[in-house]
Simulated scan of single mutants.
Amino acid sequence: MKLGLLQVMQNWHKDLDDYQTWQYEIGMALEADRLGFDSLWCVEHHFEAYGMCGDNMQYLSYLAGLTKNIRLVPGAVILPWNDPLRVIEKMAMLEYVAPGRVALGVGRGLSRKEYRGMRQDMNESRERFDEAIEMILRGLDTGIAENDGAFYRQPRVEIRPRPRKGYRDSLFCVAMSPDSQMAAARCGATMMTFIQHAIENHVPGIEAWREEFAKHNPGRAVPAPKLTDVTLCHEDPEEAERLAHQYIGAHFSSVMEHYDFAGDHFKDTKGYEAYQQGADLIKAAGLDGARTAYINAQNWGTPEQIIEKYRERQRIVGDFEPLIVLSYAGMPDDVARNSLRLFGEKVIPAISKMQLEPAGV
């Protein structure tokens, strides 16, 4: 089992300016490389303190020269907001500055505020994603970008510097809804999802993706899905619980605000109907109840408690790989850095030796 760090680049309710926040996050990335994290991921978000990285491929290109071993993954490039030609070029260049250490993460986005700012219609997101991903994968395979589709009319051009590799075997897709799970499987992508509720509730979606992946990718082993927690690690269990409820709870509030889960717009947006069901469940449970359930679903605690929860998840879902968010929601830097240190020193050595057990709820 390999552990990755996902950076969300938040300056949400922090007493730092944006430059200070970025310098702190760069320091976290360098420390993750030193501590032996397998991979470093960074989100793409726009226009708000919720996430301040408008170009994660550019950010990872900078980190390529500062890190030694860690795998660099945009997590994720939101395809409807990016020209597929530019994604091909940037990923080809990223491989040149970090050879052998690059993978590609993609998604289609969920925030209507970001869609509005990017001048895109959310109702077209699935069609744009499906057309863009095939053009991007083909371009990275062949070094030629061309397309004649409904959304992207690309005359045939050669990519220089030439792509050193394709990404069909190192492709990840954010898959939070049944629609996205099936899309990930069809394009041969490893499913990456954020833990939102009890792990048992995630099993049907993971299994559906596994079955669809096997159907569309004969001869390929089904990869281990990436399960992402907003997490916190502390030596003292009572302090870990206090900090988790304070900061993971605040992060839940930031998610609700950024994606406007209190609204009803998802039901009228093509391809996002499943999110309205989630929003309705939150309303039914009430914000306090939903926040508590969200906190309890994440993996936090002492190193020993976190390791045991990973074992429990493995028994329930089978093979998976954890991805963690450690800095968020105005958390003080020393709290996040302590979590990072404990993961590196105590959690990574334990889970790297973890043996796969048969899944079964």
Rank of each mutant, 00 (worst) to 15 (best):
A262Q: 13
K270I: 08
I295N: 08
E239P: 03
D264C: 01
D288K: 15
A274F: 13
D260M: 13
D260Q: 14
E239Q: 14
Q246A: 10
E239V: 07
T292V: 12
N299S: 14
A293E: 11
A250F: 02
K267S: 12
A279K: 04
N296C: 02
Y247V: 05
E238W: 10
G278M: 13
P225V: 08
P225M: 09
I282Y: 05
F252Q: 01
H265D: 08
D264H: 14
D260E: 15
G263E: 07
G289R: 12
A262P: 01
G278C: 08
T269K: 12
Q246K: 15
L243E: 09
D280M: 02
A262K: 13
L281P: 02
D236W: 01
A285I: 04
M256K: 04
G278Q: 11
F266H: 06
A290V: 06
E238D: 15
F266M: 11
E273T: 14
I282D: 07
T228E: 08
E273G: 07
I282H: 01
A279Y: 01
R242K: 14
D264Y: 11
V230D: 07
H234I: 09
E273M: 02
N299F: 13
G263D: 13
E273H: 09
A274E: 14
A279T: 08
H265F: 13
K226Y: 09
D288G: 02
E235D: 15
H258M: 13
A244V: 01
Q276H: 10
G271L: 03
G249N: 06
L232E: 00
T228L: 14
Y259M: 08
A297W: 10
